[in-house]
Design a protein around this nucleic acid. Structure first.
Lengths: 231, 231
DNA sequence: TAAATAGTGTCTCTCAGACAATATCGA
DNA sequence: TCGATATTGTCTGAGAGACACTATTTA
């Protein structure tokens, strides 16, 4: 053992946020353009450092989300830790990533701190042609995979529809997030078989042609049984 | 914005290890007795601080495992982050937890640094009567749940058997980790139906009474299809 | 022989995927 | 009427759980 006293090293703790929503039938992620080095000008996840040593990590995530994107009241869930040495040229930075999946998120407001934020389809963000800061491509990929899995066994999808919705609208949510096409007839059977997932309402008219669809609303159940399995 | 320059706070980064093995048909976790404050004398997961600011987090986990328990060459997987303010009275400590699940782990050797380490059945560790340091009971619970899930869709269970094994020996692994009893007949059908999970060998004799059982060895597949579902 | 463990077969459900058939709208 | 979309139904096959039954050993 060393005679002189050893002290554990200090590191910097950051939070990064993967905010997913559906825009125009595409799964999109909120990205900000970096205004400072490193990676100045590149796209990055909203996030930042803990404000002070007593700040709760999830609270820091909410604060950054509010400051950088003007968003509040979203449900965050822990996604993972990213702490490889060298991932940030400024020093040893360990980042805790959070995931939010939410509909109805507003467009970032120009003229505010959120002006640098924008929605990017995840397919674009994950393609190698988009320049992303740090290891954020990996973090986004992990978040997208988590979102796809959540659609399978939770009632999350109904949150992306209006208060009442048709089953084909709900199907479009699944198709957009999973990136696959589903058979409407099997989808109907499956979604109706998940106990407490959706409850029937009245019928509606369709703006264009075709038979009018029944309306449903979200049921009381949050965990789906049986689950909606991905093809 | 403040006129004086703001600096992000420094925090301490720790690693904690949930090392699970099977001993005497019980799922057990490796715990060490703390020799220093805080929680001096209480049981805790092996772990500690990053040695220096350039050490990789998983490397730190391996080093602590070697120092505190004399173990090497185990497969570690990330389990989660635990960073609530106040979880450690020494200051702001964020811990990254790793999980290892392995058979054939040696008894900690007395007279070495590992002398303070011991195997504890997880049922004991999770019961409220055992005094555990920090939030380690929660971390252990998360690790056990992860282990149970891994048995469902990976071939991990064969690693807990000898090179050749009977199906009832394999069944005992599942029963010990899941903490349930399984129907041997349905277990046979299920395990044989998982393609590439096990391959047949010759028959063997049983030390006591009963019909001799066939021997199997681990197959080439690591991801089970179809999975072994928990009851 | 009996007791004990190993292994097979069978029955019934539930669910998945494919897809035929019917219902109800607008034009 | 037709074209489009919604909804129901049907068939087949895989897998789960319950459990009867057969097989092979030791005592």
């Amino acid at each position: 053992m060393p005679a002189d006293e050893w002290r554990p090293p200090s590191i910097l703790l950051a939070v990064d946020l993967v905010i997913l929503t559906l825009r125009d039938a595409h799964l999109t992620v909120l990205l900000v353009q970096r205004g400072t080095d490193p990676y100045r000008g590149a796209l990055a996840l909203p996030g930042g450092f803990l404000r002070d040593e007593h700040e709760d990590i999830e609270a820091a995530a909410r604060r950054e989300l509010s400051e950088e994107a003007g968003l509040a009241d979203v449900h965050l869930e822990p996604l993972g830790v990213y702490g490889e040495p060298g991932r940030d040229p400024r020093g040893r930075v360990v980042s805790v990533a959070y995931l939010a999946i939410s509909p109805h998120l507003p467009e970032p407001v120009a003229g505010t701190d959120a002006a640098g934020a924008s929605w990017t389809p995840v397919d674009d963000a994950l393609s190698a042609t988009t320049a992303l800061a740090f290891d954020h491509r990996r973090i986004i990929a992990d978040g997208v995979e988590r979102a796809r899995a959540k659609l399978e066994h939770t009632a999350l999808a109904t949150a992306f529809c209006a208060e009442t919705f048709t089953l084909s609208e709900l199907q479009q949510v699944y198709e957009a997030v999973w990136g696959v096409e589903l058979d409407p007839r099997n989808f109907y059977r499956k979604v109706q078989g998940a106990r407490g997932f959706i409850v029937a309402e009245g019928p509606m008219r369709k703006p264009s042609n075709g038979r009018p669809a029944r309306l449903f609303r979200a049921g009381p159940v949050k965990e789906l049984y049986p689950p909606m399995t991905r093809p």
